[in-house]
Design a protein around this nucleic acid. Structure first.
Length: 438
DNA sequence: AGCACA
């Protein structure tokens, strides 16, 4: 019997390059593990969120001595190892390597590979894709293509965390029906990680976009595709048309903000300006597009639809006589997206409005660019897995004015929110923080 | 606070 001078070693396993960490905070992310462990050596592999409570993890060092250093350091340290203020207990794992069952598509990256099932390439516009994925953060670039697997898109975010939030929230979900052509019933998103980190987008076109580069040349023939659905097959005689739509909002039980309207109407193209006003006791809004064609598509697609499920905030659309709105660049009732944000902010500083990280093109008004969608908080504002019957479809980044969503469903009242078309499977669910969500 | 199957 050997007598160990150090009692904490008496019961420990034989040393291993792999450490077992427990009592981790819920959903502890890999970066936090790495931050904790990397002072002691090179980390070659990790496995987090292990165990029934997802509060355990494994970290594999490249060298056994590095693992020993970490264990011995914390064995004698007066400061325990901590993540998010929780004491983390560290031992040698009883295995000597982390078996990584991760297929390549499960290795997190900032670029998502999205397969859109059940549609032809022409059924889902790049603007709709952009709208859907912008709910989680600033989308830098999108490239779409057709492969044997079907219609696919690469979505580039600035960082891995944003990408993984989007993946966790959208994988397996369907794009809301009212953003799709009427002949498409469902289209499920299958999302994995791409090995790419930076997409090489050469043109703004109907197949690809670079939202970080407003001066990228437009491929004119490629852009034609955007305008094709304008003319209906019925050949009906057109009424007076305008690039500005007048929206009357019926049964407005819940706040409809400029941001909400921007999100909804951006699905069809660049929204240049928005103005909200009261008329005859009802709420109306003017939405300005750069051209009649886009306005026509939006009008056709949104007429009679409700912004929120349950018949709330039903839209009735007509063409406005206006062609160019004269609105305040940034107020709670109006927005001019053609003015660079920095300028608009100077005119009317508003709380909580932030630029997307890395978005130097603050004045860029490309289709549907959700300029308020930056997520500056390390905590996602999207709650990924709430029960159905949730809240709003329209994206609600943390920078949105709070009251629009604060008034959203209290348990006692019917949920507004999910657009009718997506039924009980809301794509997007705003929440201040996933950690407060349940 | 206590060892991973996908």
């Amino acid at each position: 019997m050997s007598t160990s001078a150090q009692p904490q070693f008496r019961y420990t396993q034989t040393p291993s390059k792999v450490l077992h960490l427990r009592n981790l905070p819920w959903e502890c992310i890999e970066e936090e593990l790495v931050e904790l462990c990397k002072p002691f050596g090179k980390i070659v592999n990790t496995k987090c969120n292990v165990g029934a409570n997802r509060n355990q993890a494994f970290v594999e060092f490249s060298d056994l001595n590095q693992a020993i250093n970490m264990v011995t350091y914390y064995a004698s340290s007066s400061e325990p190892a901590q993540i998010r203020g929780k004491t983390v207990y560290i031992q040698y794992s009883n295995r000597h390597e982390i078996v990584n069952n991760k297929s390549p598509g499960d290795v997190p990256g900032n670029v998502l590979l999205v397969t859109i099932e059940g549609v032809e390439a022409g059924d889902v516009s790049i603007d709709v894709i952009h709208l859907v994925f912008s709910a989680f953060g600033f989308v830098h670039k999108i490239a779409t293509f057709e492969k044997a697997a079907g219609f696919q898109a690469l979505i580039q975010y600035s960082d891995v965390q944003t990408a993984s939030t989007a993946r966790d929230s959208l994988d397996g979900r369907s794009i809301p029906r009212y953003l799709l052509p009427s002949h498409v019933n469902e289209c499920y998103l299958r999302i994995s990680y791409s090995a790419h980190t930076d997409l090489n987008i050469k043109f703004q076109s109907h197949r690809s976009r670079d939202y970080t580069n407003p001066h990228l040349p437009v491929n004119p023939t490629a852009m034609d595709g955007l305008l094709q659905p304008v003319v209906g097959p019925d050949g009906k005689k057109k009424e007076f048309e305008s690039n500005v739509l007048l929206a009357s909002i019926e049964n407005m039980q819940y706040a409809v903000t400029v941001d909400v309207l921007h999100t909804v109407f951006s699905a069809f193209g660049t929204v240049q300006k928005i103005a909200i006003f009261e008329k005859n006791g009802g709420t109306q809004a003017l939405i300005q597009y750069p051209d009649i064609a886009i306005a026509a598509v939006a009008k056709e697609a949104l007429e009679g639809h409700c912004i929120y499920d349950g018949g709330y905030c039903k839209l009735h659309l007509s063409y406005s006589r206006h062609t160019d709105l004269n609105v305040k660049a940034y107020s709670d009732k109006s927005r001019d997206y053609t003015i660079p944000i920095s300028l608009a902010m100077q005119q009317t500083p508003a709380a909580g409005w932030q630029n997307p990280p890395g978005a130097s093109a603050v004045g860029y008004t490309s289709s549907g660019m959700p300029q308020g969608h930056a997520q500056t908080s390390p905590v996602s504002s999207w709650f990924p897995a709430m029960p159905s019957g949730g809240h709003t479809f329209v994206s609600a980044p943390s920078t949105f004015p709070g009251q629009a969503y604060a008034s959203s469903p209290s348990p006692a009242q019917p949920s507004p929110g999910v657009p009718q078309a997506i039924g009980t499977q809301p794509l997007h669910q705003p929440s201040q923080s996933p950690y407060y969500g349940s």
